[in-house]
Design a binder for these strands. Structure first.
Length: 175
DNA sequence: TAGGCCATCTGGTCCT
DNA sequence: AGGACCAGATGGCCTA
């Protein structure tokens, strides 16, 4: 979990690039990247699972190195976007202490159960006091209801709420 | 110190 | 062809 106080060296570099839009390619950074890349290649060559499936790139060429660095930069940006999306998701999940950052897997699991919980609630409400969805006779006939039952498989409605509140409870204890 | 979580690099594959 | 996406590998940081 990144409740870390000190950012890593790599993170510092990435943050610089991300927030100040500085390209990676100061000469020193570039050299660092290339050295690290070479080191990894060497380690892999010595004996790894990846082995011969990996094509040998014509790594001597300056051009391909540059392409690689550009590709790394794009990948970094992509991962930053993904992380922003995770953060946005964290912020809309209720009942979680703000000071404890949820891990990615916790965020996804909690969000899933929260959605299921909300869906159950909506269905229960629509049985009782809401007008039927999509103008059909009863909520049970609505496409929404049918879709929900297709998706949820054999899980019990009550289970969603239980799972959700159990998770919330355990996260709270853990923090 | 081990284990969890993460950021980054990397090469392969898919898509436009 | 080039970019997006993906998954494996690696190493750093943090906590129990």
């Amino acid at each position: 979990m990144k409740t870390k106080n000190k950012p890593t060296k790599r993170k510092i570099l990435a943050d610089k690039e991300t927030f100040h839009s500085e390209p990676t390619s100061s000469k020193q950074d570039l050299e660092k990247c290339l050295r690290s890349r070479d080191r990894r290649k060497g380690e892999k060559a010595e004996g790894s699972k990846v082995g011969p499936a990996r094509k040998k790139s014509s790594s001597g060429s300056r051009e391909s190195n540059l392409r690689r660095l550009e590709s790394n930069e794009r990948e970094r940006q992509r991962m930053h976007k993904l992380n922003n999306a995770f953060q946005a998701l964290r912020e809309v999940i209720p009942h979680v202490r703000a000071e404890k950052k949820l891990s990615k897997i916790e965020t996804l699991t909690l969000a899933k159960n929260y959605i299921k919980c909300l869906t159950s609630t909506i269905l229960n409400m629509s049985n009782g006091c809401l007008p039927p969805l999509e103008g059909e006779g009863s909520a049970h006939n609505s496409k929404f209801y049918q879709h929900y039952h297709q998706q949820r498989g054999d899980e019990d409605n009550e289970d969603h709420l239980k799972k959700y509140s159990t998770q919330i409870h355990s996260f709270r204890e853990g923090s």
